[in-house]
Amino acid sequence: MKLINSIKRDFNTMTLVMIPVAIAINVVIGQIVALLKLPVYLDSIGTVLVAAICGPWAGALTGTLSNIIWGLLVDPNALPWFPVALFIGFVAGWCAVAGLFRTWWKVIITGILVALAAATVSTPIQVYLYGGITASGSSFITAFLLQTGRDLITAVLSTNFLVEPIDKIATCLLAFAIIKGLSTRYLARFPRPENITM
């Protein structure tokens, strides 16, 4: 019962309408960033935004659906990675509930925790589905670690711990900047405005 109430709390009509916009923000910014060849993905700003103002369950749903939509529109290769996106939203949401989305340095902590979750969850997917090697640049680090005698899981996990934080901290800070640009009156319509105001 407590679980169901906690989930229900995240979803009002504003959340329903917000999620598609957040997914579009993920996809469109993700594509622009890829186009500009920046060394980050920044493809979960919308997910973190929803997680912060609507809650962890809404954040998890946004992440999952972003991945599915990316798979539907751009590249079906993205589909098996949905658990990573799910946990990004989920962890960011609980961080916000715990008050870690109120000042920029707390947001950095959120970014680090989100990065740890993303790194951990993506490791088994990477190992069992792709044998540890994907078509991204960071796979060179994995290959290097393998050459130096690490086992596969350690190699992949360490690579992820190395590359995830920059991206996730930047993502959380950008989401925070967006929230700071929205009016209190607007934010008050969402399920968890107390996450960002004090």
Partner: peptide
């Protein structure tokens, strides 16, 4: 129904935002 609303409406918002 809300899930199917979210997915179909996302599919329409993305091209507009692009």
């Amino acid at each position: 129904a809300s899930l199917s609303y979210i997915i179909t409406s996302t599919l329409q918002i993305i091209p507009q935002m692009q």
